[in-house]
């Protein structure tokens, strides 16, 4: 395959809340939670930010970082589980805001935390078949977690956009292959009109995350005839820090290979963009020739695995693109009351 990532961009809101501040409200032990979840703080959207504004900011970053002519983009797909409208695409807002309209296609995707990686696969198909020149796949969310629920400690906000293309001279990273593993597993859901998602507690672990991530990861390595030793880095969906740490160990990837992409500790889980943000943070540090193994997971449930190889175009790209870890520096911390207001959990009468 010559299809790959031509450019990427990310966006993280500047506000954060610490686990201590959430735990204090609900009478939980912060140190136990931090050790268990391996998360110390999470991003919080501004009052005038939603999944659409975050998708636009990440899309514009991808355009700027790669110096891409937006007219070349023939498809904009946005994956999110917090699309601002039930009916009316987020992707048309993004496409208009990056001046990719009108000769292009757009649609919104939803598959819990892997909607972003599904958009990337779709763009791979459209570009490699020659239907379009470039395609933009986005994962963006202002994730929801009910007050007092375990999810509230991790549900965060942010977005990542990948511009995919199949022109041999362009990709900064090739997608060598991809493999998906999908079943009907009700480990996490949000009904139409419901404000917050529900989940199956521990059921989200073995039958959900681990079965699918391992299924897709082993499937891809078997298909390609590769093993963990063939990869310099690995990224797995990060609902917390514990799950990707455990699954990488089970699959045989050493801790140092997942470290560059482990943004969960300071960012939280940005749902549809979670694995893509990990990939972006890893690409920020990768060198030409490096190989990255990545598996996104979405409840419901499915996993998309990717084998990525960095090209010599990456060095030039890295000179001018902002880094994910740099965006996590110098946050503005908010307390629980301000966080609740920002998330619409606290409403003026």
């Amino acid at each position: 395959m010559s299809v790959g990532i031509v450019s990427y961009g990310s966006y993280i809101p500047r506000y954060r809340i610490k686990v201590e501040d959430i735990a204090r409200v609900w009478g939980e032990d912060a140190e136990t939670l931090k050790a268990g979840l391996m998360v110390s703080e999470k991003s919080v959207p501004d009052l005038d930010e939603d999944a659409a504004t975050i998708a636009v900011e990440s899309a514009r970053a991808a355009i700027e970082n790669g110096n891409i002519d937006p007219v070349r983009i023939g498809a904009v797909y946005t994956g999110s589980e917090s699309h601002p409208y039930a009916v009316k695409p987020t992707s048309t807002i993004v496409a208009e805001a990056i001046s990719a309209t009108p000769v292009m296609t757009a649609a919104d995707f939803e598959f819990a935390c892997k909607a972003g990686s599904a958009t990337v696969q779709s763009c791979m198909g459209l570009t490699s078949s020659g239907m379009i020149d470039l395609g933009m796949g986005i994962g963006a969310d202002v994730s929801q977690g009910a007050p007092g629920d375990a999810l509230e400690y991790t549900a965060a906000s942010g977005g990542v956009a990948f511009i995919m293309g199949d022109n041999e001279s362009e990709p900064i990273a090739l997608i060598e292959d991809t493999y998906s593993f999908t079943t009907d597993t009700p480990d996490f859901w949000r009904r139409e009109g419901s404000e917050f998602p529900q989940h199956g507690g521990r059921f989200t672990g073995e039958p959900g995350y681990f079965k699918h991530v391992i299924g897709a990861s082993k499937g891809l390595m078997e298909k390609m005839g590769t093993g963990p030793e063939d990869y310099d880095y690995a990224v797995f969906h990060q609902p917390n820090g514990k799950f990707p740490t455990r699954v990488s160990k089970e699959l045989g990837f050493s801790r140092d290979k997942i470290e560059p992409g482990m943004v969960i500790t300071k960012l939280g889980n940005i749902y549809s963009g979670s694995c893509m943000m990990g990939i972006a943070a890893t690409l920020d540090q990768a060198k030409p020739g490096d190989r990255i193994f990545a598996t996104a997971f979405g409840s419901g449930a499915g996993a998309d695995a990717f084998s990525i190889k960095v090209t010599d175009k990456m060095e030039q790209f890295q000179k001018y693109s902002p880094k994910v870890w740099d965006q996590l520096k110098d946050p503005v911390y908010v307390d629980y009351a301000k966080y609740a207001k920002h998330k619409g959990k606290l409403k003026r009468s």
């Binding site: 501004d46 005038d48 930010e49 939603d50 659409a52 504004t53 636009v56 900011e57 514009r60 601002p84 409208y85 807002i93 805001a97």
Partner: peptide
């Protein structure tokens, strides 16, 4: 410039986006 919500027509109406 940053892309933000400029306003909205209540809970059920349009959301207006633009530049701040």
């Amino acid at each position: 410039p940053v892309f933000r919500k400029l306003g909205e027509s209540g809970d059920k109406g349009m959301i207006y986006y633009g530049t701040k």
